[in-house]
């Protein structure tokens, strides 16, 4: 395989991975606070359609991304109100949020189907983005660099700040956190809003960096892959980055292998397509084997908090 093709594969892989990484980072923080939000797909679709609509209307992708974050956080607040304030079942409410997001985005997006926008491309000069080697570092949308920054930011927040410690405490033992005076519900509201904003930005990657259009169901089920990624990464931001790029690489290699033809065809496409899920199942098995020694799921994940 020559160097040009390798670089091309890397660039496509990073693009395919970025929405997964952003949405999964948000969900990681949500789950660390003890909340399981299965509505990622719905929030991503909402972010995708709002990001597209605002970018199309204003011509400014930065505004589009901002609006996508607000939109994702807004719909996540429906989930937060139902599950945190009213203590509704998180699994059922999360699924409902996915269905709501699919329906809302279809309705809201109707006037925007069949309209093109420009891709949100690299802001570096052409001499870097078109350089045969250096473009592997520079030929990306600002959203890609943002996602990498957020990996570090989430890691730093969770591990190095007092607020992160409180968030983890709320997720590991909500009653203890409550008894020493922290607002469990308040922390979780914040986490869910952050998760919604990140899923919204992740969704906006679809029209902004992958395929500059809006159609119904644009995210194509990738919200579920983001959910699997959080488990795959055992709730650690660094592993999440590796996992997102691995999942993106598998998805990208499927297409490059098919396009290359020849001996690559030995692996059937259905196998390529199922690899991310297979990998997640394998990792789940590994986690449960090593359960005693390594930290995995937050102890209060998915349980409603009702102060006694």
């Amino acid at each position: 395989m020559n160097i040009d093709l390798t670089i091309a594969i890397i660039i496509t892989m990073v693009g395919a991975s970025t929405p997964l990484l952003l949405a999964a980072l948000g969900e990681l923080v949500v789950e660390k606070s003890g909340v399981l939000n299965l509505g990622i797909e719905g929030m991503m679709l909402t972010g995708a359609v709002v990001g597209f609509a605002v970018t199309y209307t204003t011509g400014n992708p930065w505004l589009g991304i901002f609006a996508a974050a607000i939109a994702g956080a807004s719909v996540s607040m429906i989930f937060a109100f139902l599950t945190l304030t009213l203590s509704a079942n998180q699994v059922a409410t999360g699924l409902a949020l996915t269905i709501f997001g699919a329906g809302f985005s279809a309705l809201f997006g109707q006037p925007f189907t069949g309209k093109p926008i420009a891709l949100f491309k690299s802001i570096f000069p052409d001499s870097l983005t078109e350089h045969p080697i250096l473009r592997v570092f520079f030929d990306y949308s600002p959203l890609v660099y943002f996602s990498l920054f957020m990996v570090f930011a989430v890691y730093w927040f969770l591990q190095k700040t007092r607020a992160g410690l409180i968030l983890r405490a709320v997720g590991e033992n909500d009653h203890s956190a409550h008894s020493i005076g922290y607002s469990v519900i308040g922390v979780r509201y914040g986490a869910v809003a952050f998760g919604g904003a990140m899923a919204g930005i992740g969704g906006s990657c679809f029209p902004l960096i992958l395929t500059p259009q809006w159609v119904e169901g644009l995210t194509g089920g990738r919200g579920w892959i983001a959910l699997a990624l959080v488990v795959f990464a055992a709730w650690r931001p660094g592993r999440l980055l590796a996992g997102a790029y691995l999942f993106g690489l598998i998805a990208t290699m499927e297409l490059y292998a098919k396009a290359a033809g020849g001996s690559f065809r030995i692996i059937p496409s259905e196998l390529w397509a199922s690899l991310p899920y297979l990998a997640t199942i394998i990792v789940l098995v590994l986690i449960s084997i090593r359960h005693k020694t390594s930290s995995s799921a937050p102890a209060c994940l998915g349980k409603p908090f009702i102060p006694n």
Partner: peptide
Amino acid sequence: PAKESDAARA
């Protein structure tokens, strides 16, 4: 469409 785009890129 996202997969279709990536297929076209490949």
